[in-house]
Simulated scan of single mutants.
Amino acid sequence: MMRLVIIASLATFHSNPLMQNSADTTLPPCPGSPNCVSTEATRESQRVPTVPFTDAPVAALARARIALLAEPRTKLTVERDGHLHAECTSFLFRFVDDVDIVVDPVAHVYRFRSASRVGESDLGVNRKRIARIAARLALPATSSK
Score class of each variant (00 low, 15 high):
Val5Glu: 10
Val5Ser: 12
Leu10Ile: 13
Leu10Pro: 07
Thr12His: 07
Phe13Gln: 13
Phe13Ser: 09
His14Thr: 14
Asn16Phe: 12
Pro17Ala: 09
Gln20Tyr: 06
Asn21Asp: 13
Asn21Val: 07
Thr25Tyr: 06
Thr26His: 12
Pro28Tyr: 01
Pro29Leu: 09
Gly32Lys: 13
Pro34Val: 04
Asn35Glu: 03
Val37Arg: 00
Ser38Gln: 00
Thr42Pro: 02
Arg43Ala: 14
Glu44Ala: 15
Gln46Leu: 08
Pro49Met: 07
Thr54Tyr: 08
Ala56Cys: 08
Pro57Asp: 04
Val58Phe: 08
Ala59Pro: 05
Arg65Cys: 05
Ile66Pro: 02
Leu69Ala: 04
Glu71Val: 14
Glu71Ser: 14
Pro72Cys: 05
Thr74Tyr: 09
Leu76Tyr: 03
Val78Tyr: 11
Asp81Met: 10
Gly82Met: 03
His83Ala: 12
His85Ile: 01
Ala86Met: 05
Thr89Asn: 08
Phe91Val: 09
Phe95Leu: 02
Val96Glu: 03
Asp97Lys: 01
Asp100Val: 03
Ile101Val: 13
Val103His: 01
Asp104Ser: 06
His108Met: 11
Arg111Lys: 13
Phe112His: 00
Val118Asp: 08
Val118Met: 15
Asp122Met: 00
Asp122Thr: 03
Asp122Glu: 02
Leu123Ser: 13
Val125Ser: 13
Arg127His: 06
Lys128His: 12
Lys128Trp: 11
Arg129Phe: 05
Arg129Thr: 05
Ala131Phe: 02
Arg132Ser: 15
Ala134Glu: 02
Leu137Gln: 01
Ala138His: 07
Ala141Glu: 10
Ser143Gly: 15
Ser143Gln: 13
